[in-house]
């Protein structure tokens, strides 16, 4: 079966000379979970944002769900990709002027032209999956961070995506709120969702991921199964990074 994500030699510079992505290649197969780790500024966000066209790249090629994009950033193809790929952000980015349910039904109704009633039924189902259906009529600022992030996951799921991208989904949360979000993500992985997750949550990476990709200065330093990465990382830089994480 064709992989869900294939990146070949992705290279990108925001400013001349400084590479945010440097020849990054990777593959994510259907139903697999790839965790991306690396120090701050190493290009993790830039990398996963290229997957749904939020960032362009200068060189290389990307194939998402069989749709190939290159540095020309074909808007029509990117639009097609976005309809099949969900994304969850560090800062949740819920729409503050819409109710929780409206946040979730907006895209299915506007993009997929589904009927409002149908979208709402599906939205309520997703909210109950996330354990927050009682908040459907509330507004984002009435919810805790953990609840907002679970709404954001439900919103990303509303388009029935074939790939989910997470950019540090728990980094903005209070420590006691982190697990409710990680548990929701675990459940998705168990249901066979293909996911790319930027996170520093070691236990999540150990339990859920199939592989860990370590990025530094825009370069892939190593890609290893989690048991190897966390006990016996191949590269000095990975080990240093993990030591640093342990201390914090």
């Amino acid at each position: 079966m064709e992989p869900i994500v294939v990146a070949k030699n992705l290279t990108k510079s925001y400013t001349k000379g400084l590479r945010a992505l440097d020849n990054v290649s990777l593959t994510v197969d259907q139903g697999k979970v790839l965790v991306v780790m690396g120090p701050s500024g190493s290009g993790k966000s830039t990398l996963i944002r290229t997957f749904n066209g939020l960032e362009t790249f200068d060189k290389g090629e990307l194939n998402i769900l069989g749709i190939t994009v290159d540095s020309t950033h074909d808007e029509r193809k990117i639009q097609k990709i976005r309809r099949r790929v969900g994304m969850v952000f560090q800062q949740f980015n819920l729409f503050p002027h819409l109710s929780i349910l409206e946040n979730i039904t907006l895209a299915p109704v506007q993009v997929q032209k589904r009927r409002q009633i149908e979208a709402e039924e599906h939205g309520m189902y997703l909210l109950s999956q996330m354990g927050i259906d009682s908040h459907a009529r509330k507004y984002p600022n009435q919810l805790s961070g953990g609840e907002q992030q679970r709404v954001a996951i439900a919103r990303a799921l509303a388009l029935k995506p074939e790939l989910l991208l997470f950019d540090e989904p728990t980094s903005a949360l209070d420590p006691e709120r982190i697990n409710e979000v990680l548990d929701a993500m675990r459940k998705l992985a168990e249901q066979g969702m293909t996911m790319v997750v930027v996170t520093h949550e070691i236990s999540f990476a150990k339990d859920v991921s199939d592989r860990v990709l370590f990025l530094d200065s825009g370069k892939v330093i190593e890609t290893s199964p989690p048991d190897i990465f966390f006990s016996n990382a191949r590269h000095e830089r990975s080990r240093k990074f993990l030591n640093q994480l342990d201390k914090n």
Partner: peptide
Amino acid sequence: VPRGQWEAFRSLGLSESKGLIRIIIPQ
């Protein structure tokens, strides 16, 4: 309006004009 709002509507597949009208302008 925070950048994240643009990224959120774009990642949901909303067009620029729809996002502007439904998400950005109200805020």
